[in-house]
Design a protein around this nucleic acid. Structure first.
Ligand SMILES: NC(=O)c1ccc[n+]([C@@H]2O[C@H](COP(=O)([O-])OP(=O)(O)OC[C@H]3O[C@@H](n4cnc5c(N)ncnc54)[C@H](O)[C@@H]3O)[C@@H](O)[C@H]2O)c1
Ligand SMILES: NC(=O)c1ccc[n+]([C@@H]2O[C@H](COP(=O)([O-])OP(=O)(O)OC[C@H]3O[C@@H](n4cnc5c(N)ncnc54)[C@H](O)[C@@H]3O)[C@@H](O)[C@H]2O)c1
Lengths: 236, 236
DNA sequence: AGGAGTTTGTGAACGCGAGAACAAAATCCA
DNA sequence: TGGATTTTGTTCTCGCGTTCACAAACTCCT
């Protein structure tokens, strides 16, 4: 998908390229604004938003400036207006249909979770490879067979799917999802997925998160650099 | 915790500061090495590891070089030896005791998950604020009351905890965890947590992940920059 | 109307991480 | 033994993201 404009050199134009790091923070701002709106706040300064989100206020202002000049100097941002603008930028003014594959421990927890609907997503189907599970009722939905994948994706216009199968099954499932037309995937299985260009994969790996915590925890225990300058190993 | 060595200026010494980005990848290498070892592979080159992890081989070599010179030029890395060295660096040669607070949909899925034990963690307690849930058996464990938090943390020497309560309860739970002596927290609740210095918090937010996917998905649908140079809106 | 106070939007400096490229070190083979 | 081959460890460069700092823009009060 290397689409490049004819005259390449000049970085003219309304460069619509919002930095990836900013995009990852927009949902945080969105959530904070929703919270502020619920508490009746009409406007909010970048400092207030910074306090509510834990993001540095200058960084927050720069992030918002990528969307346009939606603030008023001396006043701040209109909470409701900014909330809508961010939702529009992210693309969650309407709900996205989402499909979950692998209805085990985790898949079940996800399908029971009510928080997605208020954040721009609607779970439209649950799929599992185990024939014994197919037909089982779970909330409003019934678990479907993998055989129905293509028809479901087509009927519901699904472009986002969640994988909660064991790691060994994940690549096979991805391939089928991609073949069915899914182009965005959230992967909970601990495996490296290969997808064709144009398909996005994000992964959530709880073991990795814990291991990162463990690393820092270990450092805390061992107190600084042991083999450093003579400074008794204190081991607090 | 602003501990700084007397003579500040020269960056001499065995600078034990491994970049955060590297630390986040070590668990990926660890998992890949475990997989390769299971398939009987004795040595692996950086290219092979790169293929198995989806990480650029140069980046991978640089990451590993922070741990020491564990490779052999012309040969590669000894799989078992490197696996152990990484596990040691992360701090998962022994299991860390972990405690989960909030045994709802998600907390239950986590406590049923078998994958943690093989990756350096052992769930030692489940806590819930709902008195009706206390005493309920769940696998090997029984749900404890929040009143037992301090004694459990002390008895099991817990330093890592997982929060899976509703967002509204999260800050209160964190405060209690910190007071009990927990210094690393993995948070699933969609709220910004405030903790004293010395305490690490990592968050996992599924809605945010989905929203990031939605953003890119929206871009795919609208085909490039619409208001750009005259170049018919193609909308593939 | 005008000055004091507030807050945004952004230019500029800086630091970190990614990746290319290559010299050094080890193996293999004749 | 020595040259070809493989692969690591590291240097160098570049781009992105963070942060500071401040002028511009707006409100409020007198
Ligand atoms: N449960 C957790 O808390 C947790 C934590 C971290 C990571 N994970 C990861 O999430 C994934 C799911 O975990 P889980 O505990 O829910 O596992 P699980 O075994 O409870 O559920 C897996 C489900 O996937 C289905 N499945 C298997 N192969 C399939 C296929 N080819 N096509 C469609 N469906 C298939 C199974 O029938 C089962 O229902 C795993 O990869 C696990 O490593 C889970
Ligand atoms: N379930 C999911 O798939 C999912 C997905 C994304 C995010 N989350 C988030 O994870 C968290 C848990 O989700 P869930 O679906 O398991 O919720 P849940 O309502 O099913 O479970 C929450 C549990 O926390 C307990 N609890 C409430 N207040 C408490 C307190 N003060 N102290 C101790 N325990 C307390 C409740 O008794 C309950 O058992 C929520 O913050 C949710 O937003 C969940």
């Amino acid at each position: 998908m290397t689409h490049m404009r004819p005259s390449a050199t000049p970085p003219d134009d309304v460069d619509r390229g919002i930095p990836e790091a900013t995009i990852a923070r927009l949902p945080i701002y969105l959530r904070a604004l929703t919270g502020l709106a619920e508490r009746g706040m009409r406007t909010a300064s970048s400092e207030q938003l910074a306090a509510a989100t834990g993001v540095n206020s200058a960084k927050l202002r720069k992030d918002l400036s990528y969307l346009g000049s939606y603030g008023t100097r001396g006043v701040g941002y209109d909470v409701e207006y900014l909330r809508y603008q961010i939702a529009r930028e992210i693309g969650v003014t309407e709900d996205w249909p989402v499909l979950i594959v692998g209805i085990g421990n985790l898949g079940q927890a996800l399908s029971n979770y009510g928080g997605f609907s208020s954040r721009g997503f609607r779970i439209v189907a649950l799929l599992d490879g185990d024939p014994a599970r197919v037909g089982e009722q779970l909330g409003d939905l019934v678990i479907s067979s993998m055989d129905d994948l293509d028809s479901i994706v087509a009927r519901e216009a699904v472009s986002i799917a969640v994988i909660a199968t064991p790691g060994s099954a994940a690549q096979g499932v991805v391939d089928r999802l991609v073949a069915a037309g899914v182009t965005s995937i959230l992967n909970f299985a601990p495996s490296v997925l290969t997808v064709p260009p144009g398909v996005d994969v994000r992964k959530v790996d709880l073991s990795i998160e814990l291991q990162i915590l463990a690393y820092h925890e270990q450092r805390k225990a061992h107190g600084g650099t042991q083999l450093a300058v003579s400074d008794e190993v204190v081991t607090l």
